[in-house]
């Protein structure tokens, strides 16, 4: 078990971690997400796939609080109580509900060092430990201990993503693949219950993509949290996801294990258009 793992033991009967019920998000007259319901289980990788413009990123923004859905409810079942995410501010979703995310176009603190990025991610904890930095200003032991713990967690995640040697470098100067991994490490440093990844494999070469699969699997198995990911790269989706939700024009057109999704006629139609005969998409 890592220091990043959950502090509280999960109840034996594992219900869903995230429940999305009848969520609709409209921009003007366009339904980006339309009456969508699904759930994601803890210790599972749930993938959301769909053609461009299917509403995947909008759904993500609703879950992480960057958008407020007009209709529907999103519930996160936390070990210490359930939370209605659509009622929380985006920063409260990250701080209180334990939902962390990464972005399609990486958003690191480019001018800060790799380690600092991971320290910023532990802001909430450190603020509490330092009484809004007052204890830190006075140099109290209480803060120094908290900071040491934070550095330890950061070191742990640097090792997991293989960036220990680059810890003191500027985050913006890292190569693209490293930046992607750092963003995941940063999200994990918030000690989340649910990790949302927006196209984590975009722009990675096949080797990096395979490494990423390993990392995501280890987060699922070793840290015991739920992962929700949007992905275009089918090798990632089919390779590691336990459960797949397929969106098209904001609606859910299929849901199930990857093998079933591969053969689902509605999915094939959405991806390849109307085929003459049933055909398995090459992926």
């Amino acid at each position: 078990m890592s220091p990043g793992a959950t502090d509280v033991a999960r109840p034996a009967s594992e219900g869903p971690l995230l429940n999305v019920e009848h969520v609709s998000m409209r921009f003007g007259g366009l339904f980006a997400v339309n009456d969508l319901s699904f759930s994601a289980a803890p210790r599972q990788i749930t993938a959301v796939i769909g053609p461009n413009g299917a509403g995947k990123t909008t759904l993500f923004n609703c879950i992480t609080g960057f958008y407020k859905p007009q209709i529907g409810q999103i519930t996160l079942h936390h070990p210490n109580g359930s939370m209605r995410l659509e009622r929380l501010d985006d920063h409260a979703i990250a701080a209180k509900a334990g939902v962390a995310r990464t972005f399609q176009n990486i958003r690191l603190f480019a001018k800060m060092s790799v380690l600092e990025n991971l320290m910023v991610a532990q802001h909430t904890r450190l603020m509490r430990a330092s009484v809004f930095s007052l204890a830190g200003l006075l140099g109290l032991a209480r803060y120094r201990r908290a900071e040491r713990d934070a550095v330890e967690l950061a070191r742990h995640w640097l090792e997991r993503v293989g960036l220990t040697a680059q810890a003191d470098e500027e985050a913006g100067s890292l190569p693209y693949g490293h930046q992607r991994r750092l963003e995941i490490a940063r999200a994990m440093c918030t000690r989340p219950q649910l990790l949302c990844l927006d196209e984590p494999a975009a722009g990675l070469n096949p080797r990096e993509s395979a490494e990423l699969n390993g990392l995501l699997r280890s987060i699922r198995d070793d840290d015991g949290i739920g992962l929700l990911l949007i992905e275009h790269d089918m090798s990632v989706v089919m390779g590691i996801s336990d459960h797949v939700v397929v969106l098209d024009y904001g609606r859910k057109i299929a849901e199930g294990p990857p093998v079933a999704i591969k053969a689902d006629p509605a999915v094939i139609r959405a991806y390849l258009g109307e085929p003459d005969e049933a055909e398995v998409p090459s992926c």
């Binding site: 920063h91 409260a92 990250a94 480019a110 991610a121 802001h123």
Partner: peptide, 12 residues
């Protein structure tokens, strides 16, 4: 550096 990333990390 990035306000949106800050929000996603729970910083108010």
């Amino acid at each position: 550096e990035d306000e949106i990333a800050c929000r996603s990390l729970g910083i108010n």
